Amino acid sequence: SDEELKKRIEELVRRGNKDEARKLAENANSDEARKWWEKLEQL
């Protein structure tokens, strides 16, 4: 689900694993996940 995906992306970003988070968001084929990633990346 998008919610689970967003949690995983956020967790990866928090751990400093941005590349992994980006790949996850891009491969998810989910606009919501991509937007979430872009938002987190700004922080």
Rank of each mutant, 00 (worst) to 15 (best):
S1W: 15
S1V: 13
S1C: 14
S1I: 14
S1K: 12
S1L: 15
D2S: 11
D2R: 10
D2L: 15
D2G: 09
D2H: 11
D2P: 09
D2K: 08
E3A: 11
E3V: 11
E3I: 10
E3W: 12
E3D: 13
E3P: 09
E3S: 11
E3G: 08
E4Q: 10
E4P: 05
E4D: 12
E4V: 10
E4W: 14
L5F: 07
L5V: 05
L5M: 06
K6R: 11
K6H: 07
K6G: 03
K6I: 14
K6Y: 14
K6N: 05
K6E: 03
K7A: 13
K7V: 06
K7R: 14
K7M: 10
K7Y: 06
K7F: 09
K7P: 00
R8E: 04
R8Q: 10
R8L: 13
R8S: 03
R8Y: 05
R8P: 00
I9C: 07
I9M: 09
I9T: 00
E10V: 09
E10N: 05
E10I: 13
E10G: 06
E10H: 12
E10M: 14
E11M: 07
E11W: 07
E11I: 05
E11A: 09
E11P: 00
E11D: 12
L12R: 01
L12E: 03
L12T: 01
L12S: 01
V13R: 04
V13W: 15
V13H: 10
V13Y: 15
R14G: 04
R14C: 10
R14L: 12
R14H: 10
R14P: 00
R14A: 10
R14T: 05
R15D: 06
R15H: 08
R15T: 12
R15K: 12
R15M: 13
R15S: 13
R15L: 13
R15F: 06
R15P: 00
R15W: 05
G16Q: 02
G16N: 03
G16H: 04
G16R: 02
G16I: 01
N17R: 14
N17Y: 13
N17D: 13
N17C: 15
N17M: 15
N17L: 15
N17A: 13
N17H: 14
N17G: 04
N17V: 03
K18C: 13
K18T: 13
K18Q: 08
K18I: 15
K18L: 15
K18W: 15
D19H: 06
D19G: 06
D19M: 07
D19R: 06
E20K: 04
E20P: 01
E20L: 10
E20I: 05
E20C: 11
E20H: 04
A21P: 00
A21K: 00
A21N: 00
A21Q: 00
R22Y: 05
R22V: 03
R22A: 06
R22T: 03
R22G: 02
R22M: 06
R22K: 11
R22L: 07
R22N: 02
R22C: 07
K23G: 03
K23D: 05
K23L: 12
K23F: 06
K23W: 08
L24Y: 03
L24P: 00
L24I: 06
L24C: 08
L24E: 02
A25D: 01
A25F: 07
A25C: 14
A25S: 04
A25I: 15
E26T: 06
E26Q: 11
E26S: 06
E26R: 05
N27R: 12
N27H: 09
N27T: 13
N27P: 02
N27Y: 08
N27M: 14
N27K: 10
N27V: 07
N27E: 13
A28H: 05
A28E: 03
A28Y: 05
A28L: 15
A28F: 15
A28D: 03
A28R: 04
A28S: 14
A28V: 07
N29M: 12
N29V: 07
N29K: 12
N29E: 11
N29G: 13
N29T: 10
S30H: 04
S30M: 04
S30L: 05
S30I: 04
S30F: 09
S30N: 09
D31C: 12
D31I: 10
D31M: 08
D31G: 04
D31H: 05
D31N: 06
D31P: 10
E32T: 08
E32S: 09
E32D: 10
E32M: 11
E32Y: 08
A33G: 04
A33S: 04
A33T: 14
A33D: 04
A33E: 03
A33P: 03
A33I: 15
R34W: 13
R34Q: 06
R34D: 02
R34T: 05
R34K: 08
R34M: 14
K35F: 06
K35V: 09
K35A: 13
K35M: 10
K35W: 06
K35H: 09
K35L: 10
K35E: 11
K35Y: 05
W36R: 02
W36Q: 02
W36P: 00
W36F: 14
W36L: 09
W36N: 01
W36T: 01
W36C: 04
W36A: 03
W37S: 01
W37N: 01
W37Y: 14
W37T: 01
W37R: 04
W37P: 01
W37Q: 03
W37I: 14
W37A: 04
E38D: 07
E38I: 06
E38F: 06
E38K: 08
E38Y: 07
E38P: 02
K39F: 13
K39I: 13
K39A: 13
L40S: 04
L40G: 01
L40H: 04
L40M: 11
L40T: 03
L40W: 08
L40N: 03
L40D: 01
L40I: 12
E41L: 15
E41T: 15
E41N: 14
E41V: 15
E41M: 15
Q42M: 12
Q42N: 09
Q42D: 06
Q42V: 09
L43M: 13
L43W: 12
L43S: 09
L43G: 08
L43N: 07
L43H: 07
L43E: 13
L43K: 07
